[in-house]
Simulated assay, not measured.
Amino acid sequence: MKIKRLIAVLMTTIMLFGSIFVNLSLAAEPVEGLMGEVHLSLDKTTASIGDIITATLHIKGFDVVAGYQANIKYDPQVLQPVYLDETPYDIGSAVEIIIACT
């Protein structure tokens, strides 16, 4: 029983250290003078009831983007997310994404 426990602890330790070093080795080396940018812009800063405000996430200055997550907090009593065809999101809605490369 003690040997099984020792092997389990040893294997867990090896996996933890192994994943740390793999993650460090996969990190991109920074290039001097280059810095990527990520920002969110809105097409208007004021709106009336029924108006649609379009939020655009701009990503530039990266050779490769493996993924990005943006969380937007809003008051659901004031704003409601909608799809491009203006159908409202519900609890199970998937995010609609349009990618434009320039």
Rank of each mutant, 00 (worst) to 15 (best):
I98W: 09
D43R: 10
I3F: 03
L6G: 04
E37G: 03
M1Q: 04
A8K: 06
I91L: 14
R5C: 02
T12E: 00
Y89F: 15
A8M: 04
L34G: 01
N71R: 04
P76G: 06
Q77W: 03
S93P: 13
E29R: 08
E29N: 09
F21Y: 07
I20G: 03
L40M: 14
L34W: 01
L79Q: 01
D75A: 15
T45I: 10
L24Y: 02
V64M: 10
V95M: 14
E37V: 04
L40H: 09
T46N: 11
S19E: 02
T13W: 02
K4H: 04
D90W: 12
L40N: 11
T45A: 09
N71W: 00
L40Y: 09
I49A: 12
L26G: 02
A28P: 02
T12A: 10
Q69H: 06
V95R: 13
I98H: 11
P30R: 02
A70H: 06
E37K: 08
V64L: 11
T46A: 10
D51M: 07
D43T: 10
K4I: 03
L84E: 15
I59L: 12
T54N: 14
T46Q: 10
V31L: 07
A94Y: 11
A94G: 12
M15Q: 04
V9T: 08
V38N: 01
L40A: 09
G67S: 13
Q77G: 06
I59T: 12
E37A: 08
K60N: 08
D85T: 15
I53T: 13
D90H: 14
D51L: 04
T102F: 06
M15S: 05
Q77F: 10
V38S: 01
Q77R: 15
N71F: 00
C101W: 05
H58T: 06
L40I: 14
P76K: 15
Q80P: 00
M15Y: 03
Y89Q: 14
Q69P: 00
T13K: 04
G36H: 03
F17Q: 05
I97C: 08
G18R: 07
H58C: 00
T56D: 11
I91A: 15
L79E: 01
S48Y: 07
I20A: 08
M15D: 00
N23D: 01
E37M: 06
I59W: 02
A28D: 07
D43C: 09
V65R: 05
K4A: 07
G18D: 05
T56R: 14
T12I: 08
E32R: 05
Y83P: 09
G36C: 06
M35S: 08
P76D: 15
T102N: 12
E96K: 12
Q80Y: 00
I97A: 11
F62G: 01
I99Y: 11
V31W: 01
E86G: 06
G61P: 03
T46F: 06
V65I: 13
L40R: 12
M35P: 00
C101Q: 12
I91Q: 15
M15I: 11
I20K: 05
A55Q: 14
C101R: 12
I98M: 12
E32F: 03
I98F: 11
S48K: 13
H58N: 12
V64A: 10
D43A: 09
N71D: 08
A100I: 14
G33R: 06
E96H: 11
L84S: 15
